[in-house]
Design a protein around this nucleic acid. Structure first.
Lengths: 344, 344
DNA sequence: CTGTTAGCGCTTTCAC
DNA sequence: GTGAAAGCGCTAACAG
């Protein structure tokens, strides 16, 4: 039976109010009394009862702010799904979640959203930060002012968040290399990579890590090049087809699961009858279809929904249960999916 | 802001006690009053506050019984770890978990443990049931008497549990086949399987599913045979080595991650210099070492810890939050791990 | 410095 | 049938 403040109070021969002040170091307690109370608490292995605490939170109106960098796209709408699920779960604990969607990496909008949230009062902030000095300074200021900040999916080097929740892009690249090795065994093989803009840290890291791992561990597999994808899906489609038709010595592809790329690969294979096997990143309907059709051998899922869910729960634990994140960087597990992972 | 009973009471112009009785159909409420109260509750989208409820549970002393079929072995000690973690988490909600370990599939011991728990009073039972008429009848009787029963890792056909939590063995076989296909591509290949006793439904199902999937989807890969492992690890070691030395046309192996088998494979490879690639089931230190050494290409983890954890949480949700399990069979995800999944 | 008290939302008991 | 009140463990406000 877990110890309560009441028990401690009765043993110490003081009132429960005194116990409260002593254990929380709120002052206004005689030093020796405080010491005795703490001693008893330790003896009894006292831990505050989270749920009783939350009941009281009713009066405190705790709200967690969430700010994204863009309108929900395919990946981030999954993240938001996770956030909303978590929000429902913690509603009973009188913790609210307030969400603001940014737009197209616009930092002015983001700054405005931050200010509005601060004005209305939030107890913690989860944000996909936009890489911009104004944002960086604002966040630094807030964090120094004591607001716990959690980074979701992206990073700002000069701000020290409570925690970062997101994908381990280096590991994603390593796993990609490992999967290519499964396909190739120890035979010679050539790989071509397709990636969204390498200006973004995430994508660049992933490709670099892929290349590095191949060179270090699986030198029989060679990354022949990385094609940067453009914004325009139709241009991408055409480009991917053209490249694949020209390059006849490519055995494997490594690519994100974008519709335009996947379709281009599918159509090229159909047309030319060539055997190309693909390792994809991100699990969505296109990846699924490609696995069912057999040309995508495996896909690496970054579990976006889990990222959102975990982020909110981490903040909740910090706010309500006084549990600090164990690590500064919290990476969601990277799942390897093959065709057979899907059915059943 | 979530609605409370108090609000409903004030709107309906009755006392909170009446609201309670009306919403829970406890009787002793005038029919029209009850109807009105329910109407208001619906309008306000009232949901009872779980945590307030749990606070009250203090007086009810809810305990969940857990009974295993054997003393904790490698796999089940992980399951128990998950159970214990979950138990800690729900302790705040005044729900206790009481564990009894069986021994060697002894059904008399299990029956005794069931009876003792019932005598002392439990609110739900999680059990790894032993396949025996006496157990079956007892559980059937309890279940009909209203005790929610959850099966963990094993099944009894004639008892209808609240839910089954465990591994999807068919899927495990399918994924095994899919991984072998990754290794083989469309080349011809021979596979040999090592499995614990095929008298057990689990193991038999897994192998059958592997075979079936290969035949249906990947006919170029042939399961040449399944070797049943024995109890004695040293006999196994010798047997595996002998078989591998004789069979020169085996390309791949499919096996559980037991020390004796893995070591025999490693030693044989070292001795003969042959290239054999292994798909393993279960993740443990031997599987890890095998992947690092390169001869285990991938392993399929059944996430035992998660099974235990989820089981307790499912029971908790049912007991405290009135949430019934969504599906009758809850399978933990089967994870595919490769060497690169491990580091970092 | 210390003790008392009200109240968070709900359940249960008892009195009317 | 219905209402009032106590209490679960904790916090915060206030009185002493």
């Amino acid at each position: 039976m877990a110890a309560t403040m009441k028990q401690i109070a009765s043993i110490a021969g003081v009132s429960i109010g005194t116990v409260d002040r002593a254990l929380k170091d709120k002052g206004r307690v005689a030093p020796d009394v405080a010491r005795r109370i703490k001693e008893i608490a330790k003896q009894l292995d006292y831990h505050p009862n989270t749920i009783a605490k939350s009941l009281v939170n009713k009066n405190k109106n705790i709200t967690v702010g969430v700010i994204t960098h863009i309108k929900p796209n395919r990946f981030y709408s999954d993240v938001m799904k996770g956030i909303e699920n978590a929000a429902k779960e913690i509603a009973d604990y009188n913790v609210n979640v307030r969400i603001a969607y940014g737009s197209e990496f616009n930092h002015e909008i983001q700054l405005e959203q931050i200010n509005k949230m601060i004005e209305d009062g939030i107890s913690a902030l989860a944000i996909v930060p936009i890489d911009n000095p104004a944002i960086e300074n604002k966040l630094k200021e807030l964090q120094e002012g004591g607001l716990p900040i959690f980074f979701l999916g992206a990073f700002l080097d000069n701000v020290k968040p409570m925690a970062y929740i997101g994908t381990d892009y280096e590991k994603a690249g390593r796993i990609g290399a490992g999967l290519l090795h499964l396909l190739a065994s120890d035979n010679k093989a050539n790989v071509l990579a397709f990636s969204p803009t390498l200006n973004m840290f995430n994508h660049k890291t992933r490709i670099e890590s892929l290349d590095k791992t191949l060179k270090e561990r699986y030198p029989n597999i060679q990354l022949k090049g990385t094609i940067e994808l453009m914004q325009n899906p139709f241009q991408n489609y055409v480009m991917v087809r053209d490249i694949l038709k020209k390059d006849n010595d490519i055995d494997f592809l490594f690519t994100t699961s974008q519709q335009n790329v996947i379709e281009a690969i599918r159509d090229t294979i159909k047309e030319t009858g060539r055997t190309i096997r693909v390792i994809a990143v991100d699990y969505n309907e296109f990846a699924r279809k490609g696995m069912q059709d057999g040309f995508i051998a495996a896909t690496i899922s970054q579990q976006p929904e889990l990222q959102g869910y975990r982020c909110i729960h981490m903040i909740f634990d910090y706010l309500v249960r006084d549990i600090r994140p164990e690590t500064e960087k919290y990476f969601t597990e990277l799942r390897i999916l093959i065709n057979e992972s899907l059915d059943g």
